[in-house]
Design a protein around this nucleic acid. Sequence first.
DNA 1: GTCCATGCAAATAATTTGCAACGCA
DNA 2: TGCGTTGCAAATTATTTGCATGGAC
Lengths: 131, 131
Amino acid sequence: MLLSALKYSRQRESIKEFLANRYDHPTADMIYANMRALYPNISLGTVYRNLSLLVDMGEVLKLSVGDGPDRFDGNTDPHYHFICTECQNVLDLKMESIDHINVIAGQNFDGEIKGHMTYFYGVCGDCTKKS
Amino acid sequence: MLLSALKYSRQRESIKEFLANRYDHPTADMIYANMRALYPNISLGTVYRNLSLLVDMGEVLKLSVGDGPDRFDGNTDPHYHFICTECQNVLDLKMESIDHINVIAGQNFDGEIKGHMTYFYGVCGDCTKKS
DNA sequence: GTCCATGCAAATAATTTGCAACGCA
DNA sequence: TGCGTTGCAAATTATTTGCATGGAC
């Protein structure tokens, strides 16, 4: 819901930059903790408000991975995510497109399939080695 | 975590039966509202506790569809779900298996892909006709 | 009688929102 | 100056939990 013009905000820029340099898909709380190093008085509300704006603008992705709080991703290139069931980490997957599943899903469906959300899960490399 | 033996409970049986006959993937609140017709004093806590047990036993599926509360599905046959971005309804999809995407995802991945969670989204048949 | 299940209420977790002060344009 | 943004706190939403009582076995 973008009803009015956006104004520059240091906090928003910092959150965006922070996410652009992280590949571990942090939660709002983790982002908040890191932002406090830069802005000791920043509030969680500000973090949530700006994350929400950035998601609406398409500059950040919100990952709702079932249990636990939402996570945020500064990489908006289309890609998929893997959730390790041991350590709960969320990893990026380098894989070819699977957009054809939209066609498969639409074959017996009365309506329009516009996309899909897919999360892969299993045990990550690190956890496989540990066990 | 099932540490102790389960005892019969009318409430749990009713919730299970209710879900077995619904195809609209109700939320805990909706289940609660319906259960109150049968058990005027049933509490939300009881609904949540029993849903959690049923999910652990594999007799009910929990659907975490991003926004909004979790939904529950009494149909445990493997199948996929579609979320209408207009009316928010969650529909079952009759489609062939797409388990091959696990193989695709695992091709450049250092770890073990055990499965995936996929939700399709778009506009359902009813909403397409309305617009 | 033992121990799980229930109802009720309070607690928790994640996120959103109201409001007065602040800061970009 | 005008209106978006912030910090702070309170509110909301979804879900979980503690506890005394009730019910299954």
